[in-house]
């Protein structure tokens, strides 16, 4: 217990310290990786811990992005209330989708979430008058201020991303150690047995999905505000596949895995694109290699070999 607390607090401390030493390019990259790792953390709650294989999480990410972004575009409410609205949008969408989609399971659940997400994507295009469709829109720098702090400045951006990431990471660590978090895992392992033990598995899965949706929206809204852009490509299928990849690479059902996977994938593409145009080839081979040689993902492999009770 304390060992894992040290690990996660240590990661947070290292990331904080990196703020002061990283060269500008890496500094910006880590800020982005932390923001997107929050998305992966959100996905991991549904997929890694509760076993809900969703292929539609981009709709929650987009709900946060557009919930915050559209309010900033058309009102003067300020970044913080808009951010809160983005979270609320993600939660509400997750609740609505969950009520319907959780009637299914397994591959059907995957397809239903994929379909709902596709409908959200098309709706963003359909309401192009407000959303500017695929082109998206820029969020004015005047709207990207919290209490006079300009979030576009590298330091502020990094620290806000770091703060968000830290909260999400510690929340997940706390959640998986609570009884409800353990029931999520029980549902993943054997839903029938969990039900026999008297748990209302539908309600718990819904809870898991809503938490997951809110955290995914937190990432989307943060991306919009920190990086100043909202666009429909973030609601597309790829952005539903990405968190799954990040989580599977980093280690599904681990707290630290989503961050590791996001970081790994980012640098895999960034570094290999410096070597060759064919970086997708390298990414593809790396993915295949990981499934062959580290099937539980990075953190899963650590857990399997060295650290049996890594959360």
């Amino acid at each position: 217990m304390s060992r894992s607390l040290i690990l996660h607090l240590g990661l947070i401390a290292v990331l904080f310290a990196l703020n002061f030493v990283l060269p500008p390019y890496a500094h910006g990259n880590i800020a982005r990786v932390m923001t997107l790792a929050v998305y992966a953390i959100g996905y991991n709650i549904a997929f890694g811990y509760t076993g809900l294989l969703s292929l539609g999480h981009a709709m929650f990410f987009a709900a946060g992005m557009y919930g915050a972004g559209l309010l900033l575009r058309f009102t003067d409410m300020g970044a913080l209330p808009a951010y809160a609205a983005g979270l609320a949008a993600g939660g509400a969408l997750a609740l609505a989708v969950g009520l319907l989609a959780l009637r299914t399971a397994g591959v059907s659940f995957m397809i239903v979430t994929l379909m709902f997400s596709q409908a959200v994507y098309l709706a963003i295009l359909y309401f192009g008058e407000w959303t500017r469709g695929d082109e998206g829109f820029v969020i004015a720098s005047a709207d990207r201020m919290i209490a006079g702090v300009d979030l576009a400045a590298p330091q502020a951006r990094y620290l806000v991303a770091w703060g968000l990431f830290s909260v999400a990471l510690m929340f997940l660590l706390w959640l998986v150690r609570r009884p409800s978090g353990r029931v999520f895992v029980a549902i993943r392992e054997n839903e029938d047995r969990a039900r026999l033990l008297g748990y209302d598995t539908f309600r718990l899965k819904l809870l898991s999905l809503v938490i997951s949706g809110v955290i995914s929206a937190a990432s989307g809204a943060a991306y919009a505000i920190l990086f100043g852009y909202a666009g429909a490509s973030f609601a597309g299928v790829q952005y539903s596949i990405f968190p799954m990849l990040w989580v599977l690479l980093g280690g599904a059902g681990t707290v630290i895995g989503p961050f590791l996977g996001t970081l790994f994938m980012f640098y895999l593409i960034d570094l290999s694109s410096g070597l060759t145009d064919a970086y997708m080839l390298i990414a593809g081979v790396a993915l295949i290699g990981l499934t062959l040689f580290a099937p539980q993902g990075i953190a899963g492999e650590i857990r399997r070999r060295f650290w049996k009770d890594l959360p």
Partner: peptide, 23 residues
């Protein structure tokens, strides 16, 4: 920040331009 470019020059698709311009 990394390759020390003096200016950037780009690209056709509008969403890439709009996504990049704030940066």
């Amino acid at each position: 920040n990394q390759s020390n470019c003096d200016v950037a020059f780009g690209t056709l698709f509008s969403h890439v331009v709009i996504g990049s311009a704030p940066r």
